[in-house]
C-alpha cells in the first residue's frame, strides 16, 4: 500500500485515495479524430517517472498531481 502525501492532509494511506490516471491530458477544443483518440485513449504508461492525478476521496476531497517512479513506486519531486 502506498503512503500518499496529500498537499492538504499530509501522508495518508492509499485506501483513502482514488487514482485518476495520467496528469496533463488536455481535452481538445476542435472536433479532430486524432486529437480525440489521443485525449480519450492514448497514454504514456512509462516505465519510469509518471505524473499522475490523485484525489483524496475519503479525506479532504482535493485533486492533486504527484510524480511516482513506476518501478520503485516511490513518489519523487517533479522533474
Amino acid at each position: 500500500m502506498l503512503l500518499i502525501p496529500c498537499p492538504h492532509c499530509g501522508d495518508r494511506p492509499e485506501i483513502e485515495f482514488r487514482n485518476c490516471g495520467e496528469a496533463g491530458i488536455v481535452r481538445p477544443t476542435a472536433a479532430d479524430d486524432a486529437a480525440w483518440t489521443a485525449f480519450l485513449y492514448l497514454r504514456s504508461n512509462p516505465r519510469g517517472l509518471h505524473a499522475e492525478r490523485w484525489r483524496h476521496v475519503h479525506g479532504c476531497g482535493r485533486f492533486f498531481t504527484l510524480h511516482r517512479h513506476t518501478v520503485s513506486d516511490r513518489f519523487e519531486s517533479a522533474p
Partner: peptide, 9 residues
C-alpha cells in the same frame, strides 16, 4: 484484482 495505479514493480 489489480492495483489502482500503473506500475512495473
Amino acid at each position: 484484482g489489480t492495483d489502482q495505479y500503473i506500475s512495473y514493480s
